[in-house]
Design a protein around this nucleic acid. Structure first.
Lengths: 149, 149
DNA sequence: TTTCTAAATGTTATGATATAACACACAAAA
DNA sequence: TTTTGTGTGTTATATCATAACATTTAGAAA
């Protein structure tokens, strides 16, 4: 049982635990993101499912499925690039931290990291001082990865 | 001489200081962003220039002009919403800080704030520990503004 | 001034991302 | 087995963005 199958099982369990269904199509989209290991656009996922999984899913459905997977915290959208990545912590037991992404501007690879809560708190303070309320402290940072530096 | 005219003058001077030209069309786009006081899409700027300034600028040109203004640090692009805002610090004398944006998810208003350098440094450390190199620490934070809380 | 050149803008076409609206299929509950 | 709601398909269209090439214009060079 390889890692991706294991992760999909975790994901399915997580969905079932509150009555949501991880259907075959939804699994296909999620496994596309898991196996590619990088951020993909909705239309790239259409291609992936057709070419690699022999599963035809119209773009409209992929968008709906991505919305579902985001809601389930199985997938995150990177707004900077308009692409989608599988959450790195699907198989983790602990509660999910706030997702923070390092996006390599050169090769497009994405790393999801956790950031110290104290840092987030400081950030939150800064925001409150400006009269705003921080809703979702998801950060998307423009970086260069080790290979591209 | 109102604030926007003053800011435009500053912008023009800043461009001239290194041989760049702030043409009428470029001024129109910038003043659209300045007077609206919020983030606008390229096509919204086309409408603004046509309706408010009696200046017809095709969308293609607006995109080119926005690219120019970004290069000149007069405008920032918000990737989260695919909109553009005038830099809040055009008239400031001091060197520009790294731009940080608070985006109200409810009404779309945007506030540009400065963030303590120590916080940015801590963030940078976190990123380096993950083996990445932080290139541009522009943050776009999902918030609610005072009116919308 | 006139000519030349490079930058700016216009024009047209098209690609990429995303959503709305309605139809149909199918699984679980009544 | 009917009903109901969820998931998916289909079609159309909105929105964001860029490529390729033509034309205009401002400033430099002759």
């Amino acid at each position: 049982m390889n890692d991706i199958v294991k992760t999909l099982a975790h994901a399915e369990q997580s969905c079932q635990s509150h009555g949501a269904r991880l259907t075959d199509k939804r699994k296909a989209v999620l496994s596309g993101l898991l196996t590619s290991g990088k951020a993909l656009s909705a239309y790239e996922l259409v291609d992936y499912c057709r070419d690699e999984l022999d599963t035809s899913i119209p773009a409209m459905s992929v968008y709906r499925i991505l919305a579902f997977l985001e809601q389930e915290n199985l997938v995150h959208k990177l707004h900077v690039t308009n692409k989608y990545v599988a959450c790195s912590h699907i198989s983790c037991e602990h509660a999910h931290e706030i997702p923070q992404f390092l996006i390599c501007e050169s090769c497009g690879n994405v790393k999801e990291i956790g950031i110290k809560k104290s840092l987030i708190d400081t950030l939150k303070d800064n925001v409150e001082q400006a009269g705003y309320h921080l809703k979702s402290p998801q950060l998307e940072l423009h970086c260069l990865c080790q290979n591209c530096v």
